[in-house]
Design a protein around this nucleic acid. Sequence first.
DNA 1: TCGATCTAGTACAACGATACAGAAAGGGTC
DNA 2: GACCCTTTCTGTATCGTTGTACTAGATCGA
Lengths: 352, 352
Amino acid sequence: MVRVTLKTVAEEAGVSVSTVSNAYNKPDQLSTAVRERVLATAKRLGYAGPDPAARSLRSQRAGAIGLLFTEQLSYAFSDPYSVGLLAGLAQVAETHRTGLLLIPLEHFDPSRPQDAEPSAQAMRQAVVDGVVAYCVDADHPAREVALERGLPLVSTIDDADERQRYVLIDEEGAGRALGRHLRDLGHRSVGIIVDGRAPLGEARVVRPEDEADLFVDSRARLTSLRDALGPQATVTAVFAGHNSQEAGAAGAAFLLDRQDRPSAIACISDVLALGARDAVHQRGLEVGREVSLTGFDDIPRAEAVGLTTVRQPIAEKGRLLGRMLLDPDYTERRVLLPTELVVRSSTGPAPR
Amino acid sequence: MVRVTLKTVAEEAGVSVSTVSNAYNKPDQLSTAVRERVLATAKRLGYAGPDPAARSLRSQRAGAIGLLFTEQLSYAFSDPYSVGLLAGLAQVAETHRTGLLLIPLEHFDPSRPQDAEPSAQAMRQAVVDGVVAYCVDADHPAREVALERGLPLVSTIDDADERQRYVLIDEEGAGRALGRHLRDLGHRSVGIIVDGRAPLGEARVVRPEDEADLFVDSRARLTSLRDALGPQATVTAVFAGHNSQEAGAAGAAFLLDRQDRPSAIACISDVLALGARDAVHQRGLEVGREVSLTGFDDIPRAEAVGLTTVRQPIAEKGRLLGRMLLDPDYTERRVLLPTELVVRSSTGPAPR
DNA sequence: TCGATCTAGTACAACGATACAGAAAGGGTC
DNA sequence: GACCCTTTCTGTATCGTTGTACTAGATCGA
C-alpha cells in the first residue's frame, strides 16, 4: 500500500505536480476546470492535501509557535491568569493560521547542569517558527537552544538580552500602588503570601535562602511591595507552596493565628487571596474591616467577591506576545504593560 | 549569510554528512574521537542540531500529537478538570519525547457547513502523529480530515466509529449513582444545572430545542440523572451559560428563588456547584440540610468544601489517551473508565 | 593463512512538497 | 504579421535530513 502524494494525484489527473500543488495553494494560477478536476481526483484517491511536514521543510515555515514553561502543566494552567494569557496568544495564533505547541520544561537548577539535557532536547526537536518563554528563568538552557536555532524569542521576564524581545508587566508599579494603598489606609503590619516551587507543606516565613525557590514574578512583586510599604511597616512574608487556594488558606491561617496578627494580608495572586479569604471567614473575621485583603491579577472571581487587586491586561499580554512573533509589522522590541489598582471592599482602614 | 546544515558541518569537519547525522542520532556508530570533532565543529559553526522539520519529513514522524477542542481556549481550560486531563496527556507525551500541539476548532453547526473550512484547514496543517479529540462532536469535520490523513484518532466521545479509538467515562453509571443517592435521601424535587455553548445570560429552564447547545458530556449526564431519579421525581434542568462559578450561582439563584424550591440541586460540574454553593449561602440556607448539593468531577476544591460529587480519574484519562496514541504495546481500542460516588457533607436527607 | 565477522565510515537515493524559470497558447495593438 | 502581454501550465532544482547498501580495513577463530 503506497502513500498518495502530489505525484500520484498529478499522474492520475494528467497534470504536473506543480499544478496539483497550485490547485491547493494558488487557486488563481490555474483554470477552474483543471482545478476542479485535480481536486476531484485527489478526493477520489483519498489524498488529504499537501503533507505539512514536507511543506514545512520546503517553505522554511513551521506553522506553529512554541510556548515554553517550566512548571508542571497542572500548576502552570491552574490559574485563570495563565489560561487568559494562553487564550490571548492562541487568538493571535489563530488569525495567523498558526498552531500552538506546548513545550514543558524542567526547572533549571544551575547546580545540576546535567539535568538540562531533556529540556534542551525538547527545544531542539520542536517544529516551530518562534518561541514564547513564559515565566522561564533567564538562565534556562532552553532559551539558549532557541537562540542557537535562530528562532525569534519573546519573553515575559526581563533579562536585558539584545537577542530577545519582551512583553513585561509593570510589577514594580503594581507593587508600589498596592503598598501605598495599604499604607494610606493605615496598615503598619502586613502579611504577604507568596507562592513558589516547593509543594504545599507547612506554611512558613520566607527566609532569604528560600528566595530562589519563589517564582520569578512573585519575587519582583514581593520586593516592590516591601519597598512601597516603607521602613516603618512590619512585613511578614509567608511562603505556602504552589499557587492555589489551599496554599492561600494555609498561608493566611499561619498569619492569622500568630500572636501579632497583621491588619492586612497581601497575596501575590488572586487565587491565593481567595484561599486567604476563606481562612479569614473561617475565623469569624470580617474581610475589609478586621483584616484587609488584596490579590493580584484581577481574575473574574475577584470582582465577584469584592477583592481589591491589581488588574493586569493578561489577554493583551498574550496577544502582544503572539504579535511580536507573528506580525512582521509589529516591530516593538520591548513593551511594558501598565497595571491598574482596583479597589474593592476587601480593603479598608486599619482597625486601631 | 547561508544556513548551517549537516552538509556545512560535514565539509568543515572533513567527514560525510551521514557521519555528522550519526554523531547526533547514533553515537555508538562512530568512534568517540570523530564524534567529538564533529560536535566541536558544529558548535563552532553555530549549528544547533538537525533541523526538526527535515527530520520529520524524512523519518515520517512528527514528534507531536494534536489536541483538538471546540470551545474557546479560555473556556476549555477554565476548569481544573480539563487542566487535569491536559496534564495527564502531557505527562505521557513527555516520556515519549513528544510535543503537544493545541488545535482550537470552531464549533461545527451542521446548518452552516461552509464555516467548517477554517477548522478543517487547521487540522490539515498540523504536523502531528496522532490526534486527541477532546469533547469534539462526532460529526465535526476536523475528525474526518484527521482520518483522511490517516492519523490515529482517540476520542472522548463515543460515536461507534471503527476507525477511532476511545477513552470514555462511565457517564451513565455516574448519573445513576448520583440519582440513586439523591432518591435514597428522599429528594423528590431536584434541580439540575447544566452548562452549554451559549454565554452566560438569563438562567432559564432547558427547553428541548436547547439540547443541541449543551456540551456533549452534559447531555449524557443530564439524561442518565433524569432516568435514575425516576418518574416520581420532579426534575428541573436549568441552563446558565458556560461552565463557570458565575453560571452555577445564576442557575442556583434561579432555582432557589422559584416558588417550589427543589430540595436538591445537582450540578453537571464541580465548578458550577461551587457557584451554586455561594448562591445557597447567600440566601442564608444551609448546604446539606435545607438544600442538598452535588457536583461532578471531584476537583481539588470539592474536598475542601465538602461537596458530594462523582470522582473521575481525569489524569488517568489523559494518560490513557496519550498511551493509545504513543505506546504501540497498548492495543486496547476502547476503555470505559469507572467513576466513583464521593459522598460528603453537601448532601443530606430531604427536609419534610 | 584464510574466509568470516565486525567496525567505522561513505555515497546516494529517497521523504513530499514548493519556488522559479520557462514554454505554449491566446489575445490585443499598431 | 510582428510584437508584446497574459494566462495557464510544465520541468526541475531544492529544502535538510535519514535509511540502506556498500567498502575498506581490522579482528578473529580454526
